[in-house]
Write a protein that binds this DNA or RNA. Sequence first.
DNA 1: GAAATCACG
DNA 2: ACGTACGTGATTTCG
Length: 878
Amino acid sequence: MAQEKLLLIDGSSLAFRAFYAMYTQMDRFTNKDGVHTNAVMTFNSMLDNVMAEFKPQHVLVAFDKSGGTFRTKMFDAYKGQREKAPSEFLEQLPYINRLLEDHGIKHYALQDYEADDIIGTLAKQAEARGWHTDIITGDRDLTQLATDQVTVQVTRKGVGELEAFTPAHIQETLGLAPKQIIDLKGLMGDASDNYPGVTKVGEKTALKLLHQFGSIANLYQNLDTLKASKMKENLINDRDKAEMSRTLATIDQAAPIEIGLDDLAYTGPDLEKLRALYTELDMRQALKKLPGSETTAPKAALHYVVLTDANLALLPQTNLPVAFEIEMLDDNYHVSPEIGFFIGTKDETFVATDVTLLTLKPLQTWLAAHELTVFDAKRNLVAANRLNLTLPKIGFDVLLASYLLNPDQNSNDFGQIAEDHDYQLPLDADVYGKGAKRQVPDDETLFNHFAEKAQCLLALRPHLLKDLEAQDQTKLFSEMELPLAMVLARMEIAGIVLDQPTLKAMGDQWTATMHVLEEKIYGEAGLKFNLNSPKQLGEVLFEKLNLPVIKKTKTGYSTSVDVLEQLKSASPVVQDILDYRTVAKLQSTYVAGLLKAVLPDGKIHTRYLQTLTATGRLSSVDPNMQNIPARDEGKQVRQAFVPSQPGWQIFSSDYSQIELRVLAHISGDKNMQEAFKEDRDIHANTAMRIFDLDSPDQVTPDMRRQAKATNFGIVYGISDFGLAKNIGITRQQAKAFIAGYFAQYPQVHDYMEKMVQTARENGYVETLFHRRRYLNDIHSRNFNLRQFAERTAMNTPIQGSAADIIKVAMIRMQQMLEREHLQSRMLLQVHDELIFEGPADEMPKLAALVPKVMDSAVSLDVPLKVESHFGNTWFDAK
DNA sequence: GAAATCACG
DNA sequence: ACGTACGTGATTTCG
């Protein structure tokens, strides 16, 4: 007989996670009585998943009992920092209990004990009987229970995935045996359960000590063998804390539970009761899944042919578009495994897992002769490049088209996009799984999915083309976004070299500064605390040091820069905190973060997301190369971005004031256009106008600063409150500023009103190149949402048209580089700036060429201005 | 997962 | 009376 299986679920931890997994959309999920159901729903689907996956004969869901536990009796502050659970959560707990009962699953809680202890006790009993146990929890502390017979499954990324902690897995990841997790927690403490551990000992130090000594007990027995150090002192001083924390972290495996293994048999659900509960809670998805509800018939498997090197001749010659994709398992196509490809014609889909077939001559020739329809051109171009091949004839991209039709539909999952256009296609997540469980399915499943995708691509193409035409976006698609995908692919493939030693050296300096500041701050504050925790920092500043509270956040005191700037004079510690924040950011994001992103070729290959933003801008991820520090000491980071070859340099050109120039053009404002036509300093010009001055000499730096902020505010869709806050004036003054501004630039005012009006009438606004953004909230009864939509209506045509312009410039620039046979390459785009590398002797050519291409990308009623620089590093190209 | 913070245009 | 600048991504803490 097969081994008996027991499933123990940490109900408290999972319910909490289930609640927060859909926290933002919580209010979308309520029943007709206003009871929230997000936690119940998520908990329920989680339950379905684990029951299906583990198929246990015995199940128990353990909960914490409210009120204290034996641990609180030992240590008052245990879990003391926790805020009370929100009422939207508490109201769902009774339903979760009912849900379990109706599922035929036992649940249990015990006075003075936590769910952990119930689970630990039962797991031990099950082991004695020779059963296998799986424990489902969101809490890593439970991994201490892992044995050969007990696997601890910890939820990841909310609740969607499980990570299986076996003793071997724990050994692999931490180098510890499960029981040593207890010593680990003893040494490092636990912030969320609010027990201390040893001062200054975090996970790293604790692991080192445990690898050396094995346990806390043995560590203290052999403390003499440690060299004198601050850490040793801390260990001596905090011995009590360590031992107490160890006790607190220990799960009681002999809790006096009144329930036994024999009570846990899973008998299956009571479908009628479940149906009643789902109905009461208005859980339609769950209702649909109940047996006996209407089911959708499984679709017939599609036909496909598996390609081999021997049957490539089967590919038919056709003038019709064909579907193509190189499939990869992960988002990051620079490094993801390539798991197969497909070629679909209207009559047949050809599939294979062996992507090296693509390098064979007959297939290359075939691909070069047929127009391809893909989902995500850039992704396929990079994948192809990894196989040393080009895809010269990509004619249609379903992802790009879908994004242009509505940039809110920016999912990267073909299944999702298909659904948006009323086509049936399984989500990639359903075929491949998510996160740790993501894997290549068996060939039949994979190939069938390929066939579905191929046929879906071919089916969607004519509809999307028609829709693009109807929205006047055909050119935007075929002359801008699709060609741009090719250009971006080349930039991403080129990558930029990171000078790692240089960056490491900077990082070491910043780390040293960080440590000095840390100690100084602890001295000034009179205590040690976690500087990276806004919560703890807030307590120190506003409770211990009694500094005035300037601003609050949802959860407590705000400690952001603008607040700290105002508190600088109140205490010397504030400046140190600001300095600490600066270097900590540089170290973690720009030194450690960038070093992590370097691929084996020594380069950083970012990915531009071409179908993400609502305005038409690009974004950049893994890593983000569009927010590398440009000011103050952080800009040194740019010294680490260097050319890929000796004798080469970095070249950069950027548009000057492109958004205000776009505004001057589309608003038709004569005064603003005049300023640009005469190449005046636009901010000084604005200052002269709103402060009613006669000559530029009368503009003080402060006036210019305020005028500049007002110009920005206008672009963002101004409000008096926002402007007042930004430049530190009263709301009245801001109001007067804005009135003055509109008096001086009257057509700008007209433009703002016109855009809001357009949005109301059409439901969307457009850029110069017909990029569209829908603004459903423009008619909202909710004041905030409506105001936001109005500001968006004013801003999107400006930001989006500027994005259009640089996209045109990039496409033309790539053509020019080829036409002029330059070795120089385009590497990066940062919204209004293009960065290249090339041989030093090509720099003068770039200096002539790039600005010319950029400023002639479009013809506006005002000139576009471009500034260029070059040097040995990105830093020097400024 | 959410929130807070801070980097860029 | 409402509560606000537009568009992004990465890191850290916390429940």
